[in-house]
Write a protein that binds this DNA or RNA. Structure first.
Lengths: 165, 165
DNA sequence: AAAATTTATGTTATATTATAACATACTATT
DNA sequence: AATAGTATGTTATAATATAACATAAATTTT
């Protein structure tokens, strides 16, 4: 099982996470022979800085603030598409928002733990889930290609009562 | 395991399905002491008539055709909200579209098999999935309240090769 | 039955999310 | 430097969803 839940829910040196993610992204782009331009990198960084997924227009606002010249929606959506195609970013369909992927390149389950209170999103990958869903698909004669699993609830910081593990 | 996959993928007397669904809806509304008005019933029926999820504006068009007077978006969204709150209808987040629920009142997994070719959607409920996801949530100290699972792929009618089971 | 209350719908306007289409600029090669 | 390929700028608009307030219909109370 892979997850970034502890990092998301507990305070930690997040700057290191961000830097590591950016480095990994450069590596992945290098391998794929595509360019992580400054706009794309800036958007990836903004998504990594926030444990809450950001919408395209939030990204636009923040990016415009940083870059001093106004950035139009198509630029944002193009960067998002680039990053999601590479698996560096996920779209959370129910939120119309985007979040950095903590384990690009790894096997994915695309399981998202979405806190209904603070909106924080953690991600999990677990093979048993994939296996089970493949089995169910198979029984229905359905050939799955990809999946998104959204769990809505309360993260440990928002759950009343015992907060720690 | 519950599923409507066979009904969705194979030709059958769908009028009976629709009527049964409407009857069930009346029953559920009666029990909940809320009203299944003609608009709400019409929208539920439209959703049941289609094995593809319909968007709010598609519903609007079709309803306007039937009712002769133009129906505005808020009316549609209100009816959708009413029906989803009762569990009679599901929203498919990645499609911004809505589909009738084949087993309201039953335990749910909210697993949707979405055909990328013909857009048909079948639904599955399976306790093992819920159990597994609860276990994963628990490890992350996340308290899940609801979930949506979207599987994207090809239904048996769109999958090249062997079509039958 | 009339008045009051609740529930549902009508109506207008607008917010939010996303894309189409075409122009310009930048990058890497030849 | 010319070319081809890739990325971004720019303008307009499509598609999805909701806010706010007015009216109507159904239900309950008197």
């Amino acid at each position: 099982m892979l997850t970034n839940a502890r990092l998301v829910y507990q305070t930690h040196d997040h700057v290191r996470c961000i830097n590591a993610a950016i480095n990994r992204a450069h590596e992945i782009c290098g391998n794929a022979n595509v360019r992580l331009t400054s706009t794309r990198e800036a958007i990836l960084k903004l998504l990594w800085q926030s444990h809450q997924p950001l919408g395209a227009y939030q990204l636009q606002q923040q990016l415009t603030k940083v870059s001093d010249k106004p950035i139009a929606p198509p630029t944002i959506y193009r960067a998002i598409e680039f990053l999601t195609d590479l698996g560096l970013v996920h779209r959370i369909p129910s939120l119309n928002a985007y979040v950095g992927c903590p384990f690009p390149n790894s096997d994915h389950s695309n399981i998202f733990l979405i806190c209904e209170s603070c909106k924080t999103v953690a991600e999990i990958a677990d093979n048993r889930v994939n296996t089970l869903l493949e089995g169910l698909s198979d029984k229905a004669n359905f050939k799955p290609k990809s999946q998104t699993i959204e769990l809505f609830g309360l993260c440990p910081n928002c759950e009343p009562g015992d907060n720690d593990e």
